[in-house]
Design a protein around this nucleic acid. Structure first.
Lengths: 327, 327
DNA sequence: ATGATGAATGTAATCGATTACATCATTATT
DNA sequence: AATAATGATGTAATCGATTACATTCATCAT
């Protein structure tokens, strides 16, 4: 209710002085400062940020768009993002698509109407066309997925290398026929992981068979179907690389519920490293992504862009690690 | 960049008219409207919400505070909240405490500085003192946990009844010594669930034993310790009611890793109904809470308060249901 | 004593929208 | 024909901060 004007009157100074006190301007005499601060305290005054934002043309707010909330993978990224935003005094709005593509506009509009200063797209929540449209005017950062053809800062792991390591692990265990369940969409990470997959096979002198590569949605039914199809095409499945922990957990569930007929000792390595891979039985071997850090760094990168402290767009690669568990 | 002023000049009308067009004021002549709309289109004009917000003293933004993001329980509530906010044209900021109590102030400040119009506290993210302080000036709604002594709107399930049903189920299966792992904090839901627990025991003519009731954090080590302590106090554990799916999954994991020495056929029913209970092996019987709806309704309630459409504070009870799985 | 320097504070424009009220043209009423 | 009513638009104040520039006053050099 109370405004800077009232504080000024009550303290017998001008609004400018009050504003200076609020912003810790060193020119104000110590005496005046304490006086004003006391009045602020007494009146329980809080500056109206709506006014400040208008005047400074800045909302100190960024947006992070996630495909969904219900995957712990994204929650963990969001956690890191929250922390980074807090540490750099920005507000952060987490937006989710939940497969309703049109809500993306809501978040873009936050930018266009000055409510947000920049945006982070996690996974493939934005397509190339959108990014091109945004490119000159609105700062953004990509997280976990780059976008070929778009020169933007991206924070991710080395998917090629990670996939290579996973496949090598399975090969070393003696597995030969390694199915790769890809993410639902075509994406830079899928491409990269496929490269690593092929590289490891080649190194081991095993022929690449495209029939073993199949996309699947992060949905139980879909994963089951995909695995069964490959199997019923006559391939004895040796091992599986899953695009996410969630998919891997569905595979285990499918085996148990006998909707998938595979040997229980099938080799299974997934990506992500969420808690999901630890609570299943058997526990799942995974490529652990530094999810919290990915979110944290993405925000940091965006903020440094906003503060004009950033140079050219860059690819920020964070280290992954493989954790071998029971599968 | 472009402002309403420039649109006005370009369209040869006053800013008032442009504003009227923007806000769909029916008084503007159709002809003028199309003319202005064309200019808006041409200039690619987007209103500056910072200005609008200041003028209208409204940010159309609410906050939802969650204890943490990493529990699917909360993600699901957040999902519902997002949807409701979208449906009622509000922005929503999800805030998480992550056991750093001081960040709560950040979210409260959003209210006090006019950046947000209302707030939702999920679980026990706010204490009584805070709520009392907020009470007269700032609208809020509680979600999943009420606060004794505070007369505020709360959206939750009937915890007493749910707990009663769960215990009865276990009793019917022949279990006699039912451990109840409570949430870490004292809370209204814990109290209510305990009531239901006692009621069911009493009905079955079984004596209530407070040694079987123990709080535990949502952390593997803690849950393991608590179960082991009860066990090593000489109690043959028959069955367990867990405060959350996550806790239940830890119990299963503990049994499997033999950090907990219980018969695998121990009766186990948890609360929540997240996907966690479906991907474990064995799958966990749970009291399914309508998490999405809880979040959705909480937002709806808050918004109707903001629009002055709400009457007195009320307790909104949503239906739960028990799903019996393998435990 | 005079003017220059600088420290502390004040005045008023500004950010970009909304909106009460004023104005003007046109039509309806008597 | 004079007046009232209505419709469409314009003028200018307003929201509450920030900040460029102006002002005041004390101190100091000449």
């Amino acid at each position: 209710m109370s405004s800077i004007k009232e504080v000024a009157k009550q303290a017998n100074v001008s609004v400018a002085t009050v504003s200076r006190v609020l912003n810790n301007d060193p020119v104000v005499k110590a005496e005046t400062k304490t006086k004003v601060l006391r009045v602020i305290e007494e009146m329980n005054y809080k500056p109206n940020m709506l006014a400040k934002n208008l005047r400074k043309q800045a909302s100190k707010t960024i947006v992070m768009v996630l495909p969904s909330m219900s995957n712990p993978y994204f929650s963990e990224i969001a956690r890191g993002a929250h922390a980074a935003a807090y540490d750099s005094s920005y507000h952060i709005i987490i937006g989710t698509i939940e497969s309703k593509q049109w809500v993306l506009d809501t978040y873009i509009n936050l930018l266009k109407t000055n409510l947000a200063e920049g945006i982070i797209f996690v996974s493939s929540s934005a397509n190339k066309a959108l990014l091109e449209q945004l490119q000159p005017n609105y700062p953004f950062v990509l997280c976990t997925e780059s976008c070929p053809g778009i020169d933007a800062t991206c924070v991710a792991i080395d998917n090629r290398q990670a996939s290579y390591e996973a496949v090598r692990e399975l090969l070393q265990r003696g597995h030969k026929r390694i199915v790769y369940i890809a993410g639902s969409k075509e994406s830079s990470s899928v491409t990269a992981r496929l490269e690593g997959y092929k590289e490891a096979l080649k190194e081991a002198g095993i022929a690449y068979n495209p029939d073993l590569i199949r996309p699947a949605k992060n949905v139980y039914q879909d994963v089951v179907e995909v695995v069964n199809q490959i199997h019923s095409n006559g391939y004895e499945i040796d091992a599986i690389i899953a695009h996410s922990d969630l998919q891997a957990s569905y595979i285990l569930r499918g085996i148990k519920e006998e909707t998938i007929h595979l040997n229980e000792t099938v080799g299974l390595i997934s990506f992500d490293g969420t808690f999901v891979a630890e609570i299943t039985n058997p526990t799942i071997s995974t490529i652990v992504q530094p999810l919290y850090d990915l979110g944290y760094r993405a925000v940091q990168q965006l903020v440094s862009q906003l503060l004009n402290e950033a140079g050219a767009p860059q690819l920020v690669i964070l280290p992954h690690r493989m954790v071998v568990r029971e599968t």
